[in-house]
Amino acid sequence: MFKDFTSEIMSYPGGEKITACMQCGTCTGSCPTSHAMQYTPRRLISLIRANQRDTVLQSLDIWKCASCYSCTTRCPRGIKFTDIMYILKNLAWKEQSKMENKNIAGFYNAFQGLIEKRGRMNEAELIMKYSFQTNPVKLLEFAPLGMKMLLKGRAAFSAPSVRNQVQLQKIMKLAQERGGE
């Protein structure tokens, strides 16, 4: 296995350059959600390098990344931090016990479930599924917006899907079986 958390991260595509970080904080300063993080992106790198695996993977901060790639574009040391966030989320997801937030888990589950099942997304269906998985009361919160969208002809209730569902399900399953790496 891995010598430490740093080498584990470095083994994934995108995680290679983590040791080059000079802790300048450009990532944090460029991140639109870092103001709400307990551990800023720079600190997450520090924690990884300090081998604090559980602290990092249990942190809700990793789920606050909006994938805007600002940190990646601006990093003066070429670290692809958005990719590192994805790696961290992957690891946290695989070790589900480390995922605490019900909303996040519910949404990701609903989205992924729909894709695995049908290959295409439908926002209305996603919201319904998400609400049922987390808190059905949410449906009421989404209802007014849903109505507006419906009126504007922007909600599709028929479930779209790919024709070759067998093929899609097969490749998704094979990918899942290979440890999700």
């Binding site: 300048c24 904080g25 450009t26 990532c27 944090t28 300063g29 460029s30 870092s34 800023t40 720079r42 601006r74 003066p76």
Partner: peptide
Amino acid sequence: GKGAEVAQIDGRLVVIAE
């Protein structure tokens, strides 16, 4: 912390950094 960005908010410059 390296200055990440300079914005202008309500006519005033704002340096954003960690």
